[in-house]
């Protein structure tokens, strides 16, 4: 799967969970840049990513995620 396709699918997940239809992803975007991106939302985002991409993260994968760019890289590495 190409980075563009991963980014588009991730954007759909983030827009739904964070209830923000106009959210545009940036690689350096993190929780503090987006309203309502709290731990509960992040838990749901991770769960949705695993479902949509049919992958399963290890905790060490998750803890490498500092921002959206890292999330995309780690998703791609698991595909």
């Amino acid at each position: 799967m190409e980075k563009t396709e991963v980014t588009e699918k991730l954007a759909l997940i983030l827009r739904k969970v964070l209830n923000n239809d106009s959210l545009v992803l940036r690689d350096d975007m993190t929780a503090s840049d987006v309203d309502n991106w709290d731990s509960l939302s992040h838990m749901i985002i991770i769960n949705d990513i695993e479902t949509v991409f049919s992958i399963k993260f290890k905790l060490k994968d998750l803890n490498k995620m500092r921002n959206v760019g890292n999330m995309i890289e780690i998703i791609i590495s698991k595909l």
Binding site: T30, A31, S32, W37, D38, S39, L40, S41, H42, M43, I45, I46, L59, L62, N63, M65, R66
Partner: peptide
């Protein structure tokens, strides 16, 4: 972000 760490 603590939201990421706790959510993870």
């Amino acid at each position: 972000s603590s939201a990421f760490l706790k959510g993870n």
